[in-house]
Design a protein around this nucleic acid. Structure first.
Lengths: 203, 203
DNA sequence: CGCTTATTTGATCTTCGTCAACTTATGTGG
DNA sequence: CCACATAAGTTGACGAAGATCAAATAAGCG
């Protein structure tokens, strides 16, 4: 029902949809691909605040400035709306606003679970949790009950998501590999060999 | 306009309003006091996911189970609604739902800023940021341009908020005291002597 | 007052970050 | 197709921040 005011847009990896601090002029729905929401600290370090997957909502309706930047990690397809159009439309369509409220509440819950991860987990637990979430979102079933994911992030980006360094992420993945919990056929591919054990590790 | 279906309730420090995992049967508005939202990891460690101050909204409308527990830190006054009543009421009153959506979006932004704190700051920055946020929310102006706060949390709870240990929090406070940035007339009271410098530390 | 609990302080130990070297991919131009 | 260049990832050695363990103080409270 939003089709009238939205338009499709294709993004390439690395393409920036919104900039942190920009006046928020648009909102969007993710149709396909993975995007990151990120904020920068004064010293240039980047903290990824969340990832957006298909069906997720992006942007800050009714707000003033975007509190974080949004950048595509993979090829992505999104449906964008001018914020003014969207705001007006939402006000006139309570059902839409209701839907949006539900999603935002869910997003808030997700973000709070992430805080848990950042505040209380050690490196091993973080990496394990991340792999599990990723396979839940993007995983494909492979042969023999194994799960298979293509990572939408570089090691650096994983480190930024988890509040770790690239080296620590790499070491943890190596550890999981030698423990036989995962396989890494290539840099961007992960096979979960033992989900049970991984869940154990994630705590 | 919600008065018809809400009722006042008084909470004492330590009193639990909702339990993590409970069926979410109520939602509430904070009128006075400070509450904590917290979740427990398997090993018993607690991560405080956020604090709720006057005017904040508590609970999970339209959801199934409460994703975190809510407990009063100080004497608190809240206005509670049966969730069923509230949901029905919200559906019939788009203005209310709109207001709630705006608040939830604001809350989401706040929670994301907190993720930044947990993921990227060191102990000194965390404690400094926390004191600044607290004085913004609860601080009273004292003599000589200084700001004065009564801490609603114990050291243990501060540690839980910041993802640190009690000892580290204590040491950081001692460090700030010897640097002349704060005074601690009693355990639960803090005087900011040099806000500028504290902001510097918080990064 | 004595007893219990919260906080501070000190002494180690661990984890993870930092710095550096090395290896593996991914190109690119000849 | 190969040689080389560049970027991404892995591994190792070391150090620092913060956790953990252990007392020592300081509040509260009956």
């Amino acid at each position: 029902m939003l089709n009238g005011i939205g338009r499709r847009r294709q993004l390439e990896p690395g393409e920036q949809l919104m900039w942190e601090g920009d006046e928020a002029v648009l909102v969007a729905n993710v149709i396909d691909g993975v995007l990151k929401l990120a904020s920068h600290s004064a010293d240039g370090g980047e903290q990824i605040l969340g990832l957006a997957y298909p069906s997720d909502f992006l942007g800050r309706p009714f707000g003033e400035t975007a509190p974080y930047g949004v950048e595509a990690l993979t090829d992505a397809q999104i449906c964008v709306f001018e914020r003014k159009d969207f705001d007006r439309f939402a006000r006139d369509h309570p059902r839409l606003e209701h839907k949006l409220l539900e999603r935002t509440l869910t997003e808030l819950d997700r973000s709070r679970r992430w805080m848990m991860l950042l505040g209380r987990m050690n490196a091993g637990q973080k990496v394990a949790s991340f792999l599990l979430e990723l396979t839940d979102r993007l995983g494909k079933a492979g042969a023999g009950g194994e799960t298979f994911v293509t990572l939408p992030l570089s090691r650096q980006q994983m480190a930024d998501v988890l509040g770790l360094t690239i080296e620590t992420v790499s070491r943890q993945l190596s550890r999981l590999r030698s423990a036989g919990l995962i396989d890494t056929p290539s840099r961007r591919e992960i096979v979960l060999r033992d989900r049970r054990e991984l869940e154990e590790l994630a705590g």
